[in-house]
């Protein structure tokens, strides 16, 4: 073997080519923006939030006042203008799952993990990039939705404003809720490594679990329900929290804990499993 021709460039890697967390973040940002499907999904989420903020308040204003006086008393102008958030969570949840399972489905994950063999920086970078992008896009979207919705409701003088207690928190909270839904989806996607399985698990937790819990005896369901991911997470979007739910910030904290737990499980699995 002609080891004598081994060139001296083998000696030390150029320090400029080290993998760093910041570089992996830049890489994940490139991955996110360079797929048409992610751009369209995010766009769809924004269209849902802003579009329904015009549609739902317009319908409500047109039929005002409702027949039942109780509906007048419990009317929540903030919630009406944020109706699109509940549709947008589908797009953002699916996108969170896809951001990682898309790599497993195509085999890209092997190229990714060969470039970042320590692996965990990839999960942290994906989480950070996706959470930041979601928050940066949804905050202006919910602010716009609120503003458009209230201007439509003002035709019947039933609008509210940021000056009212709890309103600003609920509007910004809607963006925070959507962001955590996306992160939870990403963590479940990383854990399950399969698009269909990840999406099913995410929406099973968010939408099906509460239905199942409601079939339990009410002494049980009342105690459990407020700690479920969706109930806890949506507490922050309510201007006047119901007595049965957690307080807004505690609810968001509980929802975040679900996402963190899923991320920790995903990190352990990513470290341990074969790619």
């Amino acid at each position: 073997m002609s080891t004598s021709v081994l060139s001296d460039r083998a000696a030390a890697p150029r320090p400029t080519q080290r993998v760093t967390q910041a570089r992996v973040v830049l890489s994940e940002w490139t991955k996110l923006r360079s797929l048409r499907s992610t751009v369209f999904s995010l766009l769809a989420a924004i269209v849902c939030i802003v579009g329904l903020s015009a549609l739902v308040p317009a319908v409500v204003a047109h039929h005002w006042p409702p027949h039942d006086p109780a509906d007048v008393a419990s009317f929540d102008p903030t919630g009406v203008s944020l109706a699109g958030v509940f549709l947008a969570q589908l797009a953002i949840g699916v996108l969170g799952v896809l951001f990682i399972t898309g790599e497993y489905a195509t085999g890209m994950i092997r190229a990714t993990l060969a470039a970042v063999p320590r692996r965990l920086p990839v999960l942290w970078a994906k989480t950070g990039v996706f959470a930041t992008v979601t928050l940066v896009l949804t905050v202006p979207a919910v602010l716009a939705a609120f503003t458009i919705g209230q201007s439509i409701l003002s035709s019947q003088h039933i609008q509210t404003s940021f000056g009212e207690p709890g309103v600003f928190r609920a509007v910004i909270g809607a963006a925070l809720y959507l962001t955590v839904v996306g992160v939870l989806g990403l963590a479940l996607g990383a854990l399950i490594r399969n698009t269909a399985g990840g999406i099913a698990t995410l929406f099973g937790l968010l939408f099906v679990l509460p239905v199942v819990v409601h079939f339990l005896p009410s002494s049980w369901s009342d105690a459990i329900d407020k700690y479920l991911p969706s109930s806890a997470g949506q507490a922050i979007v309510q201007v006047h929290p119901e007595s049965s739910s957690l307080s807004p910030w505690v609810g968001l904290l509980v929802f975040c804990l679900y996402a963190v737990a899923a991320l920790i499980a995903a990190a352990m699995a990513l470290n341990r499993r074969d790619a």
Binding site: V19, R23, T112
Partner: peptide
């Protein structure tokens, strides 16, 4: 690597760029 370890929705340029960026290339 054996099977194509490439995301089918991404361009060749962006695929290479994303991998290069992990190492500051």
């Amino acid at each position: 690597l054996e099977a194509r370890a490439v995301h089918t929705g991404r361009s060749a340029y962006n695929h290479l760029l994303a991998l290069a960026q992990t190492s500051g290339i």
